[in-house]
Design a protein around this nucleic acid. Structure first.
Lengths: 124, 124
DNA sequence: TTTGTCACTTGCAATTAGCAAGTGAGTGGA
DNA sequence: TCCACTCACTTGCTAATTGCAAGTGACAAA
């Protein structure tokens, strides 16, 4: 088992919370991860999610996630080469975070739609 | 028990994950909440945390958290009036999210310092 | 009177986000 | 062959947010 989630990004401190936020603490990243948990793998699928992520941000976040080791891409066709994006083990292990968020929202945000319990989907 | 975490903020969707991110999904908010979990209550204490939050952002986030019902402020002195900030029940119930983040980081980010298990501190 | 603390505000530059439009490789159809 | 269309991006440009430094006002202590 490789332990990572590394690199390029500057660390504000060594605190577990701060480090995690440096990786996934923004408006969009966790939504992409949510989509992956629920079976989406392709650029277009992420783009089509109802929140409407801008394409430049989607591209940027997929690369950050890849270089952090949370997501891996592999070609699903050639001519032209197209990639699908899937959670790595480190990425999948974010499941409990997602789950606790969904639970919290279900309790404290009125009228929220909770996705049907996190399913750990990895190989289509 | 009041259920809230409402208001002013625009909602991108009704998804539990998206709604929660609209509330606490940025670089700083969860660090303030972390600090509160570990006993900090005053502006200066948050400001002194090692990540070095800018003061305008701290003020802004405290207000957002207050208006979302996650934090309540009360005066701890007069002349001049100074307030302390504490988690409400809704705020305290973010504990499991914080905990799952700390656990994940402990597993997947090397060299991370995990704060000693989340203690639910409310009244000094 | 001066110095210092606390909890902010304000100003402004730098970074990031967000929208629209464009691009290039390919497919399918007339 | 030409045209339209898809997918996965890029690019350009504006708007919004961040982050740093400095300033402010109420007060206490020296």
């Amino acid at each position: 088992m490789r332990r990572y989630a590394n690199s390029t990004s500057f660390k504000r401190s060594n605190c577990a919370v701060a480090c995690t936020l440096d990786l996934i603490g923004d408006k969009w990243t966790l939504l992409i991860i949510r989509d992956m948990f629920f079976g989406k793998t392709r650029y277009k699928e992420f783009q089509d999610s109802e929140e409407g992520i801008p394409t430049n941000i989607l591209t940027n976040r997929l690369r950050k996630l890849e270089s952090a080791g949370l997501v891996a891409k592999s070609p699903y066709q050639k001519n032209p080469v197209r990639y699908e994006y899937r959670l790595t083990e480190a990425g999948r292990s974010l499941g409990p975070i997602l789950k606790s968020i969904i639970n919290w929202a279900g309790e404290y945000i009125p009228g929220v739609r909770r996705p049907k319990a996190s399913q750990t989907r990895t190989t289509g």
